[in-house]
Design a protein around this nucleic acid. Structure first.
Lengths: 193, 193
DNA sequence: GTCTATATTTAGATAGAC
DNA sequence: GTCTATCTAAATATAGAC
């Protein structure tokens, strides 16, 4: 279409703002990111942002929804694999594939959780935790289908290992930490009876 | 002493400010903490802080030095134990003992690392990583003395597990995650030949 | 060495023209 | 629906009286 309808243009801008917010919050953190930063990244005029989002917190919420949507599409893709063990190994491979981003900026949801958890007001302090919970639940289901003992404990261990290796890779600026830990986790999966 | 010398009083205030900064940054995060918050927590008049620390970043540096000092005294205490395996189990027990604080505010050094890593200026972006490196080095030494293979990989796994379980406990506000993961890590240590 | 008052800067948010 | 100008609030940092 050469001339998208105003409604379509508006939806496009809203989507661009959401995607840009997710990216910029990951790179700069919530507190160091200004509305102007987001507008620039989305190529939307600064004064126009408030037409689409009433407050900065609404932008943060939209970014969290974006992360949740990404996670949903990732797990749906992995669900195509027949073997739950292969699904978990696919998840680990995805993490390792993002090692350079992780070494520079950490896990998008994990770092957001750390920042939001410091808040006492606004009601977003536990919002990132819900996205992490979504991942934990999916991982637990895979262990359950594998028929191993303590599926939720194992899910905590796997997702915890991911958050931990992302934080270390980020703090030490070393993507190879993701590779090494990913290999170890895949090995452990292979060793499960 | 009823009347400490001015020099002693000054050193006392500096120490109070350092300790208060470490505590408040942990609870509120760097970006959401104001100089006034720190002054109040240290019971020092707000306008007086700048006599002791020229900038907010100097306070952040002091807090990091405090964490490093805490880590040094903790490892020195654990070094009194004869068996390196017992030292590592003592470290894990210390982590689990701090589960309520971890569930509320995360690991002091880890959450500081996440925040500082988002910075591109000021030179403090990698400072928290050095404290984490200090812990990694000590843990690696213990594995080395145990004579197991891949001591630095194992150190990454153990410290990563700690950072991961702290983040999950914090994001989900559940201290029991620390207990469960701590038990698993201690078990793994017992299983090492 | 202590403290008040204030300068400076910055960012979130809004009013209103177009 | 778009955009500029601006209000307001807050926080870092400084000047200077005591």
């Amino acid at each position: 279409m050469d001339s998208p309808s105003p409604r379509a243009a508006a939806a496009g801008k809203r989507q661009r703002l959401t995607a840009a917010t997710a990216r910029v919050l990951h790179e700069q953190g919530v507190e160091r990111t200004t509305i102007a930063d987001i507008a620039r990244a989305a190529d939307v005029p600064a004064g126009n942002v408030y037409y689409y989002f009433k407050t900065k917190d609404e932008l943060v919420e939209a970014a969290l929804a974006e992360h949740s949507g990404y996670l949903t599409s990732l797990t749906h893709r992995l669900d195509q694999l027949a073997d739950p063990r292969e699904r978990l190994k696919g998840l680990i491979a995805t993490w390792v594939g993002q090692r350079d981003t992780a070494a520079r900026f950490g896990c998008p949801t994990g770092t957001l959780a750390v920042e939001l958890d410091k808040r006492t007001e606004g009601g977003l302090d536990l919002a990132a935790g819900q996205v992490i919970r979504q991942l934990l639940d999916w991982v637990e289901q895979q262990y359950r289908q594998l028929g191993v003992a303590d599926p939720d404990g194992r899910a905590l261990a796997l997702v915890g290992a991911y958050q931990g290796m992302s934080l270390l890779a980020n703090a030490l600026r070393d993507p190879e930490i993701m590779t090494r830990e990913g290999a170890r986790l895949a090995c452990e999966l292979d060793g499960l009876t």
